[in-house]
Structures are given as C-alpha cells and as structure tokens.
C-alpha cells in the first residue's frame, strides 16, 4: 500500500492505496463519491471522467498514486459549497442535455475542462472535446447546446465579475 495525499473537491484526503488502484476505485470505493460512474473501465466511454489539476482524465485508467499531491475535481465538486449549481450544470438542465444521466457527470467535467481553456469554443471544438464521452440517450445535440450556452453565460459572468465559482478556482488548481 502506498500513502497519498489528494485534494479532492477542496478537501485534503490522506489515504493508503494499492499501487495499481485506479482513481475511479479510489473515489468511488474509498471516498464513497459515487457521482463518478463506471461504464467500461477501458477508457472508451468517458463516464468516469474527473479533473486532475483541471485537466480531464479517465479515472478508470488513471493510477491513484499519480493523484498524490494533486487536485482532483469530481462532479460533487462542481457546484458551490452552498449547493448552488454551477453555470454548466444549470445549462445542462435547461437544454435537456441529459436523459438517463449516467454519462452526465463525465460529460460535465470534460466540458468544464474545455471551457476553462477555450472560453468561446466552436461547435466542432465542443464535439471534439467531448468525443471521449459516449452518450447513448441524447444524440449529443442538446449537450453541445448546453456547453455553448454555458460558454456564453460564463463569458458574460466573467466580463462582469472576476471568476468566483469554486469549481473554476479548483479547476485551475
């Protein structure tokens, strides 16, 4: 077992992990953060996507030991500590960008990482950034719309105030 110290959604967690333990096992089983989903465990669905230092990774492939002394953001860390939904989450709801919701946590984090780097993505950029996340329910169209409207809203918010929502600060690590 190997000791790691990980900042998960703002909380520092000390834990012992197996050397080959995946970050997905770590968050779901050790931390009981079950918002992160397991769809395939091979890197081919994106349901397990979380952010490590603001960058998207497949938690099912990522080694938990590689999260040592880094910041991990899961879906539970997207909304504010007072429970207010992040802009992106709100836009997903408004655009009907989810049905069964199983792809949603991973989709949200992949989209959050995109918007952090590319505040005004083209439709193609959004599609490319989400191409590691399979959604079987929606046909993607409402998800693309949600991300684009979140981009617009975030630009407006950003123009009027400095970034303040906790997830954006965390994502930047």
């Amino acid at each position: 077992m190997q000791a790691i110290k990980v900042n998960v959604n703002g909380d520092v967690r000390d834990a012992m992990v197996e050397p080959d333990e995946s970050l997905l096992q770590f968050v779901r089983e050790r931390l009981q953060l079950t918002g992160t989903k397991e769809g395939c465990s091979t890197g081919y669905c994106g349901a397990c996507t979380v952010l490590v230092d603001g960058e998207p990774v497949n938690a099912c492939l990522f080694f938990a030991v590689d999260a040592d002394r880094r910041h991990v953001t899961t879906v539970e860390g997207l909304s504010g500590s007072d429970g207010t939904l992040a802009t992106l989450q709100r836009c997903f709801i408004e655009a009907a960008a989810l049905q069964c919701g199983f792809c949603t946590p991973g989709m949200l984090l992949a989209a959050a990482a995109l918007l952090e780097r590319t505040p005004s993505p083209s439709e193609h950029e959004v599609r490319a950034a989400l191409s590691g996340n399979i959604c079987r329910c929606t046909g993607y169209q409402p998800i693309i719309k949600a991300v684009q409207s979140a981009a617009q809203a975030l630009r407006r918010e950003g123009a009027s105030a400095p970034p303040r929502t906790p997830q954006r600060v965390q994502a930047r690590a």
């Binding site: 079950t34 989903k37 009907a96 919701g101 199983f102 949603t104």
Partner: peptide, 20 residues
C-alpha cells in the same frame, strides 16, 4: 417544454443507480 424533475440530482451526481 419544461425541466425534468430528476435533472438537478443527475447533474449533481446524486442520482443513485444500483452500483451506487
């Protein structure tokens, strides 16, 4: 057209599926 009642829990990752 309206917002799904189960949407908020789904975007928060709070929805419980069997494995959860």
């Amino acid at each position: 057209s309206r917002v799904r009642p189960d949407a908020a829990a789904k975007v928060r990752g709070e929805t419980v599926y069997v494995a959860d």
